[in-house]
């Protein structure tokens, strides 16, 4: 069943046209790879899905319901989570503050709502443990963490609220080999739980190993929509670089 449906989405930043009528869809429990050159428009498209950017034209539905009129906060509550390429963490705040940012659990004292810090800390710790992430301490500002540790916090933030769709923009960029395997395992686990996943990555081997389908963006157009089981590295690379540059790329591949 279709979870997310993107239809003819276009976007320009001033005079610069970035997306030209892109179509893309994700089913429940489906892992879709979104690949393309630097500047192809991958992050822009996904930020339109989360509401960080507005689309100039097109339609996006989640479970058949139009979401373009909803705020980023509402879309999160509807189940769309994203791990941003720049992580989008508040560096001076601690792990639990980051994980629960915008959705802090509250408890009532004398009829007033106060942030329930104990619950936040406990659940943040549980999430970090579940991910198997190694953090120095949960009550330290995340700005003092390594890139990989920060990435773990960003992943934890996206998974804490039972999402329906998780968008990962280069989630493994800062990770060591073992942690990369951890993220790929995590993606398989999300899939088994019926969660839709969009994985943006330049590590094509990872994309080929974990996705069901691969959508290739080329200069703001969906240049290919490939079933992972029926494609290979060469086909993906040629779609990424475009046919005009195919000979050059093939030569590059041949050289290794």
């Amino acid at each position: 069943m279709t979870l997310l449906n993107i239809t003819k989405v276009s976007k320009a930043f001033g005079p610069v046209s970035v997306l030209h009528g892109v179509d893309m869809s994700v089913d429940r429990g489906e892992v879709v790879g979104l690949v393309g050159d630097n500047g192809a428009g991958k992050s822009t498209l996904m930020k339109i899905v989360t509401g960080m950017y507005t689309a100039d034209a097109g339609e996006i539905t989640l479970d058949g319901q139009d979401i373009l009129g909803n705020t980023p906060g509402e879309r999160r509550r509807m189940g769309i989570e994203m791990i941003y390429q720049d992580l989008a963490l508040a560096r001076q705040q601690d792990v639990s503050a980051n994980i629960f940012l915008g959705r802090e659990p509250e408890k009532k004292v004398l009829g007033m709502n106060f942030v329930d810090k104990a619950t936040m800390r406990r659940e943040a710790q549980a999430m970090i443990d579940r991910l198997g992430a190694r953090l120095p301490a949960i009550n330290r500002p995340v700005g003092s963490f390594s890139g990989g540790q920060q990435q773990s916090v960003a992943i934890a933030r996206a998974l804490t609220f039972d999402p329906k769709l998780v968008i990962m923009d280069e989630p493994t960029a800062a990770l060591a080999v073992r942690e990369v395997q951890g993220v790929l395992d995590l993606i398989r686990q999300l899939k088994s739980e019926g969660i839709g996943v969009i994985l943006i990555s330049h590590r094509l081997n990872d994309v080929l190993s974990v996705t069901d389908r691969i959508v290739v963006l080329n200069h703001g157009r969906a240049a290919a929509n490939l079933t992972t089981a029926e494609t290979n590295m060469t086909e993906v690379v040629s779609a990424i670089v475009g046919s005009a540059e195919m000979d050059h790329a093939a030569a590059h591949e041949a050289r290794g």
């Binding site: 980023p72 989008a88 963490l89 560096r91 705040q93 940012l101 959705r103």
Partner: peptide, 18 residues
């Protein structure tokens, strides 16, 4: 908490739906 969050990183706060 949101006050400090927007002072820390407006982008983080915005992506969190604030």
């Amino acid at each position: 908490r949101h006050t400090l969050a927007i002072g820390d990183s407006e982008n983080a706060a915005r992506t969190a739906g604030i």
